[in-house]
Amino acid sequence: MWTLADRQLNSRLLLGTARYPSPQILQEAIAASGAEVITVSLRRESAQENRDHRFWEYLKASRAHILPNTAGCASVKEAVTTAHMARDLFDTNWIKLEVIGNDETLQPDPFATVEAARILAADGFEVFPYTTEDLIVAEKLAAVGCRIVMPWGAPIGSGQGLRHLEALKTLRQRLPHLTLIVDAGIGKPSHAAEALEIGFDAVLLNTAVSLARLPVMMAAAFKHAVAAGRLAYEAGAMQASSRAQASSPTVGRPFWHEDTF
């Protein structure tokens, strides 16, 4: 068990709900992943579009905690208003704060993110800010009231893994009391395992599962990878060495003899 905000969870995998082949596969993937927190967004309702309202029914049936996001927001005002609407709709003070600064790279705007986080934290929200691996931004987010910080591994949907591993390690070392979650950029279970191995508390991913050839099977793969990564972190990995060191004992090895009689 571990604590995320004020909730006790078993799984260290947070799962997004976008781009699955069908609502049924989404539901099965959530179950296979073991995720207890799932993300959702808010979009304009339209009577003209014949939207599939089963989506929300499936999510409710999963019994997972809902983490609404402010995806698509490009300003402090938009993000704050969207967070308020999410709180009203989902009856939760959790909000995944995304303020995008560049439409091409989907890079977060760190200045707007910190300002929106300040407003929302003061208003009682548990803010999960999406940010880069920049240490100073993470420190500013903590200073305005964030207990959780979510740096990207790589750009959203890119599947490149942990592009700046050393910077992520620095975040973990310098911010030991924050809950750190790698959000975005994870493409394979080994990426998720690596994030947990370096001491991150959890990972949040979406397309690595939803765009897999078999999403439900991939969800299970991530479940095991995250658990393995955490176990490895707690077990303490050996130090890497540039030289070979025989693992079998040299004493009494067979066929060894002195060069001379």
Partner: peptide, 26 residues
């Protein structure tokens, strides 16, 4: 606008209204 205020909040000329619903998201 909180849900409990829907019945009281009167709309005004040139108001801009956003009506949002849950959607899949990452």
């Amino acid at each position: 606008i909180p849900r409990r205020s829907y019945g009281e909040h009167r709309l005004g000329e040139r108001d801009t209204i956003e009506i949002l619903a849950p959607m899949a998201g990452g």
